[in-house]
């Protein structure tokens, strides 16, 4: 008669953690693939408005951003300011910025360059219009008003 060996309980066996690194690495790779690097520190408060007819912005490398909103720190004032790259700017700096962005791209890609306007929803149109006029002057016609997606009822 076969007898099952009665295993004497010697305390709980240790849980193998050798696959834990693999799991974490998997998570790591997931995040590395799905996210993009933060490129600029944003000094202005931006609460994007919501819209339903939005399109996804393809090819992030071909997008240059213009941020407009009230500064996050009160010492920079309360009026909406324009931010280009990592610093505050004025409307007159926009053409130079676009030129810089163009030069940073391949010649073949330049005509696909999109300017994304990230504007706070409480900003008045005056400043936005000024920026748009500058963009028109330098020939950066393709623009994108950055908005959140909202489902229409």
């Amino acid at each position: 008669m076969a007898r099952f060996k009665q295993s004497k309980s010697k305390g709980l066996p240790a849980i193998s953690t050798s696959s834990l690194p693999d799991i974490i690495f998997m998570l790591l790779f997931f995040f590395m693939v799905t996210t993009t690097m933060r490129e600029t520190t944003i000094f202005v408060k931006i609460k994007a408005p919501a819209a339903s007819e939005v399109e996804k912005l393809e090819k992030k490398s071909l997008v240059s951003y213009i941020y407009i909103g009230p500064p996050t720190q009160v010492k920079y004032g309360l009026e909406p300011r324009i931010q280009l790259n990592d610093q505050f700017a004025t409307v007159n700096d926009v053409p130079e910025y676009i030129e810089q962005e163009r030069n940073a791209r391949d010649e073949a890609d330049r005509k696909f360059l999109t300017t994304s306007l990230k504007v706070d929803k409480d900003v008045k149109m005056g400043i936005v219009t000024d920026v748009k006029q500058e963009l028109r002057k330098v020939g950066a016609f393709k623009i994108n008003y950055s908005t959140k997606k909202e489902v229409r009822q």
Binding site: T35, K56, F141, K142, N144
Partner: peptide, 29 residues
């Protein structure tokens, strides 16, 4: 696992996940 965690947290902090959506318009010349 700790090393991988550190890397993971680094990437979580330095990257953003937001998908850029918006209304695309073409300005007139």
């Amino acid at each position: 696992a700790d090393i991988a965690f550190l890397l993971l947290i680094f990437f979580l902090v330095t990257t953003t996940m937001d998908v850029d959506t918006g209304i695309i318009r073409v300005l007139p010349p």
